[in-house]
Computed example of a mutant assay.
Amino acid sequence: MSRPGSAPLASVDYYDNLAVTLSGAYDSISFEEVHPGVAPHLPTLPSNVLDVGAGSGRDARALAAMGHRVVAVEPSEAFRSVAVREGDRLRWVDDRLPDLPHLVAEAQRFRFILCSAVLMLVPATRLERCFTTFATLLTPGGALAVSLRAPAPGEPADVFHAHADADVVEAAETAGFRLTEQATPPDALGRQTLRWRSFVFTSGE
């Protein structure tokens, strides 16, 4: 069963079954290759940073290596068992969108939030709640970087969900965010069937 307010457990099961294979692929490419437009939006000084849906931990480790204090959120136990490498600047948390209840209860705030390849696992009815949660966790003036894609042929419809760009932007703006950058980066692993869209939002001052 899923927890109250959590994403459908089917998505976690799906990634539990693929975690070992996917981790090898994800870790074969760099943070910069996957997120070419994010660097200008990162804090210039060491800050609290949140990686939601950290997967193999590639991005969380890269952010920690930059000097940031990183919390990596990952609901897949199989991914965490492969990826977890905790240190002074990196902590792993088992939590789930749309509400991230454990993290919200800690009342910690972050200067930058990364949510990569996650929102396509959230049904449209929960999209706005995700951004409301991000707004709760982000410090005023902080940046939120989001990437997502449409479901690929053959992917299970109960796991992957299509969100139009306008719906993503509307959900973010309803939660108080302002769109500052939008792009369509290529898939860093060269998968021609995947079409990525990335957004950077800024919270209100």
Rank of each mutant, 00 (worst) to 15 (best):
G5A: 12
P8T: 07
L9N: 09
V12K: 11
V12P: 06
Y14A: 11
Y14G: 11
Y15M: 07
Y15E: 03
N17Q: 15
L18G: 07
L18V: 04
A19S: 12
L22A: 11
S23Q: 08
D27G: 05
S28K: 11
S30T: 15
S30Q: 07
S30M: 08
F31M: 08
F31L: 12
F31W: 07
E32K: 11
V34E: 15
V34S: 15
H35V: 06
P36V: 09
P36W: 01
G37S: 10
V38A: 15
V38H: 10
V38R: 12
A39R: 13
P40G: 08
H41R: 10
L45W: 02
P46D: 04
N48V: 06
V52K: 11
G53N: 01
G53Q: 05
A54W: 00
A54N: 01
G55V: 07
G55Y: 02
G57V: 04
R58H: 05
R58N: 10
A60G: 10
A60K: 13
A60R: 10
R61P: 04
R61F: 01
R61D: 12
A62E: 04
A62N: 07
A62I: 00
A62Y: 06
L63I: 01
L63F: 00
A64C: 03
A64V: 05
A64I: 00
A65D: 11
A65K: 10
R69K: 15
V70N: 05
V70C: 09
V71N: 07
A72P: 01
V73L: 10
E74R: 14
E74D: 10
A78M: 06
A78D: 07
A78N: 06
S81H: 05
V82H: 13
A83E: 01
V84C: 13
R85K: 15
R85L: 06
E86Y: 00
E86C: 02
E86K: 10
D88N: 15
R89E: 08
